[in-house]
Amino acid sequence: MKTEDMLKALTEAPGISGSEEDVAHLLRNYFARLTDEAFIDKFNNVIGIKKGTSSAGKVMMAAHIDQIGFLVHTFEEGGFIRIAPIGGHDPRVLPGQSVIIYGKEIIRGVIGTTPPHLQKSGDTGKVTALEELYVDTGLKEEDVKARLRIGDPVLFDNVCTRMAGGYYSAAAMDNRAGVLVLLETLRILKGLKHQWDVYMVGTVQEEVGTRGGALTAYEIKPDVGIAIDVTFGDFPGIPDRQTSKLGGGGAVAVGPNFHPQLTERLIALAQDWEIPFQKEFNPRPGGTDAVSMQIAARGVPMVQVSIPLRYMHTTVETLDLQDIRRAGRLLALFAAHIDEIHGEVVG
């Protein structure tokens, strides 16, 4: 299957934090073709194990499979639906969005807006708070209630679109892009020899507090951990130092969350193999799985590679597919050499 097609399938599969079943099954099937063992745990974390020649150590690569969204919160007279957020939303992104509600059947709706004709003066200067927004399915109240329950997931309607210059745009690129890096790594790793066992993990509930990463790292207890996520792509109005360039390669994270020497060796590997990469600086522990994996059980030395992504947590998250390919290649090489690197710098 082509990388582009997997990106489309992964971004369009529903998987709100806490209900990741669909995307988990899709990923398990992908893993099954590329690993020795692939399964889903009781929380929907997806684990693929590719055995190494010596199995002397374990490297765990984690990318979260969950995405932000909403839950049906209350039903209002007339069949309108109030929603509760899952993950971090900018309320300004929401009005007029098409959404899909995963109830007893799939129901489509829009987040309601007031047309200019009916607005009061001064309205255009206001932001409608999330609690004041509602989803309208157009259906009668009884039809809504017969099909939907409080707690049903509400996701943005999502179409992965190919843009000019090898860019792709979709919701849930955060972090299906990272998931695709896992698959790309596995694809390249097939042609390489590696000593250690490689644990590929699609983690759940990252968007509500990096929970899946904590639990799977505790279970697997890897010798080295790699978090793969997305990072802020360059965009006017944001200082360059806070962003990474689309097309500039994976962003290797530097900061207290990450093992300095392992990170140096990862960078050296990229330089040796002439794989484009960039650095990003996280002076504080950030909001990725690395944060909880680093301190799971007896602790895990971490590195992190992120895919530059514009417009994070909107419905039009945009990236350069080339960055995913490069990150996959770099991480495959890292996994193939991890036994020596670990021996030299962690011990």
Binding site: S19, E21, L71, A84, V208
Partner: peptide, 14 residues
């Protein structure tokens, strides 16, 4: 419970 800030109750439990 379906959710609060500390927990998304797993589907099978709920």
């Amino acid at each position: 419970k379906i959710k609060d800030s500390s927990l998304l109750v797993p589907k099978k439990v709920k």
